[in-house]
């Protein structure tokens, strides 16, 4: 995609972690007040979906930055401050997404979300919302000098977590990049192990196992996924230039969104859950299982092709 298109995509996507998230948060508060499990689950699904969309939102930001820096009235230090604020918000969004997924997984098992997790989601989502709104506000100032606080635009970023610090650390620490790569492959292995066992069961291999039994394994796969989101974002922040317009990475992220949404089928839907030991999964379940395995193999292919098609290493 061209820089301009990626920048457009950033302007589209950035409404999800802000406006979209506020809808989820509002729904979650109503659900807590009305003690409605259905509303709770609906808001957790929204949190999870927005958590996933935050990944491409953050990544397209780099292209948007490259597209506007150098234009008249655009402050480079302000875009850096926006990126730093967004990075912190991104990390909290990741925690919100994981806890939300865990809540959905717990509800599927016990028809109940434990109080500790509901409280944790409430606190973390409020912090996430605050940080996201702040990042968005700074982002808005980039093109709207009329809302800029006087003199702020040229002040260097004073954020707690700076993308440039992450970049500096990885670039000057010789073991950092190889360690991230190793963790990314260990995460991949955990994820693939779970994807294979759960979906092979759905396809009829080892069909004496009930779905509710293999459902137990899902947190290990999600742990692998989270390791890879965090290490992946560190790669991206360290050398954004080779990833910003990498066609293989763009497709990889598109498939990751689909595969991420697809985890809902295995986490919350009744269809897979109802598959008991010895039973064949319904055709739609087998289709989802085959699709899931192919999606993840496709994601590995695109990741592996990034140096060869996309020109990164």
């Amino acid at each position: 995609m061209s820089l301009a298109n990626l920048a457009h995509l950033h302007l589209l996507l950035n409404h999800f972690p802000t406006v979209g998230f506020s809808v989820g948060l509002g729904l979650y508060l109503i659900a807590l007040i009305r003690k409605s499990d259905d509303l709770k689950r609906a808001s957790l699904v929204i949190f999870l979906g927005i958590g996933l969309l935050t990944i491409p939102t953050f990544m397209t930001g780099k292209a948007a930055q490259a597209a506007v820096v150098g234009q008249e009235g655009v402050s480079e230090t302000l875009t850096a401050t926006h990126e730093d604020a967004a990075l912190l918000a991104f990390l909290f969004m990741t925690v919100t997404g994981v806890l939300s997924w865990l809540g959905l997984w717990q509800y599927r098992r016990t028809s109940h979300i434990p109080g500790w997790n509901m409280t944790a989601i409430l606190l973390i989502s409020l912090i996430t919302f605050g940080l996201m709104a702040r990042a968005a506000n700074i982002g808005g100032e980039i093109r709207h000098p009329e809302i800029q606080a006087a003199g702020d635009a040229t002040a260097p970023s004073a954020e707690l977590l700076k993308a440039s610090s992450v970049q500096g650390f990885v670039n000057t620490t010789n073991w950092a990049w190889p360690t991230m790569e190793t963790l990314h492959f260990i995460g991949l292995t955990m994820l693939m192990g779970v994807v294979l066992i759960v979906n092979l069961r759905m396809l009829g291999v080892a069909k004496n196992i009930s779905f509710s039994a293999v459902h137990r394994l899902l947190p290990w796969g999600v742990l692998g996924f989270v390791i890879n989101v965090v290490t992946g974002i560190i790669f991206f922040v360290t050398v954004p230039d080779q990833y910003t317009q990498n066609i293989a990475l763009e497709y990889k992220m598109a498939l990751t969104m689909i595969a991420g949404a697809n985890v809902l089928y295995f986490t919350v839907f009744d269809e897979a859950w109802a598959v008991e030991g010895g039973m064949d999964a319904p055709v739609s379940g087998k289709f989802m299982a085959g699709l899931t395995i192919l999606l993840w193999i496709g994601i590995i292919w695109l990741g592996r092709m990034m140096p060869f098609i996309g020109g990164s290493f």
Binding site: F185, L188, T189, M190, L191, M192, G193, V194, V195, L196, I197, L217, W220, W296, I297, I300, W301, R304, M305
Partner: peptide, 18 residues
């Protein structure tokens, strides 16, 4: 070759670890 080696790793090490 590199891709197949990575997918194979997911199968052998992933299933074994699980």
């Amino acid at each position: 070759v590199l891709f197949l080696h990575t997918v194979g790793m997911g199968f052998v090490a992933g299933i074994s670890a699980l």
